[in-house]
C-alpha cells in the first residue's frame, strides 16, 4: 500500500521533479565556477581540483590584461546600452503610437537582427568595415553592439507602451498639461519599466557578447569574453572564475534590490 502511495505521489509530481532536474542542469556550471575560483590548479588550466587557495580572490588583477579587458567591456556595455536605449525607445514609441506608411517593413527590420545567427551579422559587418578600411577597435565594437541591442530595446519598450491606457494621457491634457508636461509627467514614468528592462537586457547582452565582437574587434582591442577565449587556448587563470562569480553576485544583488525597491514602493502607494 505504502509503495503504491509513493508511486502515486511520484507520478503526480513528475513535472516538478523534471523541473528540479532542469534547474540543476542550469545551475551546476555556476557552482563549478564558484568552487574553482578557490582552486590552486596544478598546471596552466583550471579544470581539475588541486587544493584550496584564496590567491585569486586576493589578487584578482594579477594576470596580464584581464582587468583592462573587464573595464573595456564595462565601458562598451554602458555606452552601447545608452545608445541602444535612446534609439530603441524612439523607434518603439513610433511603432506603438502611430499608424504610418511603411510600418510593416520597419517592424520586419526590427525583428530581423533577432532572427539572424550572430555569426552572419558579425561576419557581414566585419566585411563592411574591412572594405571601407575602417580601423577595427573600440568604435567598431560599439557600433556593432548598439546595432544588435537596438531590437531588444524596441521589443521591450513597445510591449510596455502598447499596454498603456491612453486615457491617462487624455486625462492629463484635460487638466491643461502641455504635450511636453504630459510626456514627462505621465507617459515617460509609465513607460519607464519597459525602458529599464530594455536597458538591462542591452547591458547584459553587450557585456557578454563574444561572436559579433570577435569579428569586429581587431587584434589589439580585447574585451573580457575575448580575453577568456584567448586564455582558454593557452592557459586559464583562476582569476577568470573570480570575475565570473563577481559578475553573478552583482547581478543577483541588483535583482534582489530591484525586487525590494518595487515592494517598498508598492507598500507606500
Amino acid at each position: 500500500m505504502i509503495v503504491l502511495n509513493w508511486l502515486h505521489w511520484i507520478r503526480r509530481h513528475l513535472v516538478v521533479f523534471a523541473a528540479i532536474a532542469a534547474l540543476f542542469y542550469m545551475t551546476i556550471p555556476n557552482v563549478i565556477v564558484l568552487i574553482f575560483s578557490f582552486n590552486q590548479p596544478k598546471g596552466r588550466f583550471n579544470y581539475s581540483w588541486n587544493h584550496f587557495s584564496l590567491d585569486a580572490w586576493t589578487h584578482p588583477c594579477d594576470v596580464g590584461d584581464m582587468c583592462t579587458s573587464v573595464s573595456l567591456s564595462l565601458q562598451i556595455a554602458v555606452l552601447a546600452t545608452i545608445g541602444a536605449t535612446i534609439l530603441g525607445t524612439m523607434v518603439a514609441f513610433a511603432l506603438a503610437r502611430y499608424r504610418f506608411r511603411g510600418r510593416a517593413p520597419v517592424t520586419g527590420l526590427i525583428w530581423l537582427p533577432m532572427a539572424m545567427p550572430e555569426i552572419v551579422m558579425g561576419a557581414s559587418l566585419g566585411t563592411l568595415f574591412l572594405n571601407m578600411r575602417i580601423q577595427f577597435g573600440f568604435w567598431t565594437i560599439l557600433i556593432a553592439h548598439i546595432m544588435f541591442c537596438l531590437s531588444f530595446v524596441v521589443t521591450a519598450v513597445k510591449a510596455r507602451v502598447m499596454s498603456m491606457d491612453p486615457r491617462l494621457e487624455q486625462a492629463a491634457q484635460d487638466l491643461y498639461a502641455t504635450p511636453t508636461q504630459t510626456f514627462l509627467r505621465v507617459t515617460l514614468p509609465i513607460a519607464a519599466p519597459g525602458i529599464a528592462a530594455g536597458a538591462l537586457l542591452s547591458f547584459a547582452i553587450s557585456i557578454d557578447d563574444f561572436i559579433i565582437t570577435q569579428f569586429n574587434a581587431g587584434p589589439s582591442t580585447v574585451t573580457f569574453p575575448m580575453f577568456v577565449w584567448g586564455a582558454a587556448q593557452k592557459g586559464l587563470p583562476v582569476q577568470v572564475n573570480v570575475i565570473g562569480t563577481l559578475m553573478f553576485l552583482v547581478a543577483v544583488l541588483c535583482v534582489v534590490a530591484g525586487q525590494l525597491l518595487g515592494r517598498t514602493r508598492k507598500a507606500r502607494s
Binding site: M26, I28, N30, V33, Y47, A204, A232, V250, V255
Partner: peptide
C-alpha cells in the same frame, strides 16, 4: 525560480561553457 532561470546568464557564457570541461572531464 524565474531569477534562478535568468541568473546563470549573468556569468559570462564562455566561463560557464568552460565549466562543462570540468564537469565532463
Amino acid at each position: 525560480l524565474l531569477v534562478m532561470v535568468i541568473a546563470p546568464f549573468f556569468t559570462s557564457f564562455l566561463i560557464r561553457t568552460l565549466a562543462w570541461k570540468t564537469i565532463l572531464a
